[in-house]
Design a protein around this nucleic acid. Structure first.
Lengths: 196, 196
DNA sequence: ATCCATAAGCGACCTTGGTCATAATTTGAC
DNA sequence: GTCAAATTATGACCAAGGTCGCTTATGGAT
């Protein structure tokens, strides 16, 4: 169906143009009219594809998650689950932070949508599921022995993941590599805070 | 100085009225004009006290943190550091979630301001410091033996704290008590994911 | 009491995100 | 090719957040 492909193409064009402009001038400084003009469409048309200006940021975030979810099996055969988690999530972190300032906004949008509205961010849900099955697999293979429920583990990991993104965003923390930060936190929750 | 006290009083009035209205009709549904009218001031005056409408939410979040920071010593003589952390942060969680839907918005604002702008959310910084000194004290008292840096521990704890707030916000997770959720996560990071 | 400098209040005004009735376009059926 | 139904594009319009130059109130100095 031609209609469908054209629709998708236009949405993609709007998305790309918008990102470009956001990169150049900053999110707030770009008006919807500008984006529309850059795509040769009317302002109203923009809202046929994205219901709010912020939805572009959400789309950005979700598409990054999508990419990760798709490429997840790439890490299937890493033997140690901890190593696996590290690789998977460092990959995602890298992706998120590579886009600079814009990604921070995007992260906030994803968080907002995922946790604020019943919007049911499918991408995050899928990430959770992927991580859960990663853990379960490790368990079955005898690579992980843990007293905790799988989904509790996943939530904990996501917690430090979130924390990593956020503390990395802090101006004065930018010196350390984000992957290293996450690894450190992962170490902590893996081994436990209290000394064995 | 009379001026100062009056300023503070008016700011407080705006804050309280705004919250009231937000509770009644929802954040988006309340206009700045409404808030101003409810206070008997002009719209422009509102912006002398809060630079954006959202700043009310930020103020709400920060003031909650403030309250906690002030009441922190209440938990000084709890013997076990883990218990101490649990009490302190459960207190905060309770505070945050007691206000219902509005708090979610407020949380997002605090996160935004803390991690997005160089705004330097002092309240969060102070919370971090309080937690850090809590950990250090436990260490000196021989109550905690850990290989990790204090600030790494603090960040990890904050990570699961964040995670708790957020997964609790999820519509389908509301059944469990938020304090219990946090406690579970705290257990995990305290003992470690991997079985000893 | 008067005057001045500074701070706070004000609301017309502008900008811009978002809506909606209408117009143009596409699709499928005949 | 023609027509009707459904889909998409459009831009005038609206609402509301935020700005700004001007007015009013305040507090201290003389």
């Amino acid at each position: 169906m031609l209609r469908e492909t054209r629709k998708k193409a236009l949405k993609e064009q709007i998305f790309v143009q918008a990102l470009q402009l956001f990169q150049e001038k900053g999110f707030e400084q770009v008006t919807v009219q500008e984006i529309a003009s850059a795509c040769g469409i009317a302002k109203g048309t923009f809202f046929n594809y994205f219901t709010k200006k912020e939805e572009i940021l959400l789309y950005l975030g979700e598409s990054q998650l999508e990419v990760l979810n798709k490429g997840m099996e790439e890490y299937q055969d890493v033997p140690e689950p901890k190593e696996q988690l590290k690789l998977v999530l460092t990959d995602l972190l890298q992706r998120y932070t590579s886009n600079g300032e814009l990604m921070k906004l995007s992260i906030v949008e994803v968080i907002k949508s995922a946790y604020l509205f019943e919007n049911e961010s499918k991408s995050i849900r899928r990430l959770q599921q992927s991580l859960a099955s990663l853990i379960d697999r490790a368990r079955r293979n005898g690579k992980l022995n843990s007293r905790w429920d799988t989904d509790v583990i996943v939530s904990t990991v996501l917690g430090v993941y979130l924390q990593t993104m956020m503390s990395w965003s802090l101006p004065h923390n930018q010196h350390s590599r984000i992957g290293d930060m996450f690894e450190r936190y992962l170490d902590v929750i893996w081994e436990g805070i209290a000394q064995r």
